[in-house]
Design a protein around this nucleic acid. Structure first.
Lengths: 161, 161
DNA sequence: GGAATATAATTGACACGTCAATCATTTCCG
DNA sequence: CGGAAATGATTGACGTGTCAATTATATTCC
């Protein structure tokens, strides 16, 4: 086998890269559109509502919420502002740490999440599961694990310059 | 084997879905960040510049450009506006159809694209190719094809309601 | 105790994407 | 020919994401 590492991608690798990134992007957009039209929620809303629903008392510190769903703090801050305006959550001050803030699920937020759940699960099946064989689904999990691990390694390398 | 189709995703399918969508999103973001920091271009800029570079005379009708890179018209229009402001392209009227517009690659745009190419190819190798085995790369191409075909079918079903 | 530092969160500026509305021109066809 | 419909493209409004700067409170340590 010829040397590969350290060289530019081959034509075939490039083709696969483009296909892969464009298709996953289209999949993301399709799912976002489904969720929006069926439930009036964005995927961001859904992530936040899911995390709060699973949290004790439907409330979480901002930073914990950010960690749970893997968002940057400022992104979450902007998003909570929008969700607050729509009445899906409300913000409260944290009693134990006056710097902190808590996001609290409202009745309306809980209701919106429950209305969204079934259609969203159906969309995951229709757009993702139904399009793949069981072997391909396993391959998708495998790929995600490999790419994710590799991204982390790459980030660490970056930081230790 | 038990009946699957028409049911909600299993726990395992759901885990893989989340892993897959989050990881591909992280990959997209990492690539965008690399391109931005190394070349001062967004991935959108890169797509547009690539299409124009490969086009005859470095110019394309707006609608053809949109079709080439698979964008909606209004998205392209906004993006060309931003690229125009930065001097990467300029707009000209189409002589054969007065409704039409052409996007033309500028010297500056061509130069920016050439500066970006090598680092971008390197990033594709480092973030994608190097993280996967050859079999996994084939699996990625396979997945993209299957998901893409399925998305198209789903869209058609949607339209023929 | 109190200054230096670290941490929690928000804000503002700006790029990006989508949708619906709009405008100009061309094509279709009676 | 001439008006209706189709086409090419732009625009405005708004939600979203990132980065850098800012604000407020806690912690550290002399």
């Amino acid at each position: 086998m010829t040397q590969r590492r350290g060289r530019f991608p081959t034509r075939e690798e490039l083709r696969i890269w483009r296909d892969f990134i464009e298709t996953t992007e289209a999949l993301r957009a399709a799912m976002a559109a489904r969720l929006q039209s069926e439930s009036g929620l964005s995927t961001g809303d859904y992530s936040v509502l899911l995390a709060l629903t699973e949290a004790e008392n439907g409330r979480l510190r901002s930073s914990e919420l950010a960690a749970t769903i893997g968002w940057e703090r400022s992104r979450l801050s902007h998003h909570l502002g929008r969700m607050d305006r729509r009445g899906l959550i409300r913000r409260e001050n944290c009693t134990s740490d006056n710097r902190g803030a808590e996001a609290v699920l409202t009745e309306e937020g809980a209701a919106a999440f429950h209305r969204a759940t079934v259609p969203h699960l159906r969309a995951i099946r229709e757009l993702f599961v139904d399009g793949l064989t069981p072997a391909q689904i396993r391959a998708a999990g495998d790929l995600a694990a490999a790419l994710g691990d590799h991204l982390i390694l790459d980030r660490e390398k970056e930081e230790n310059l």
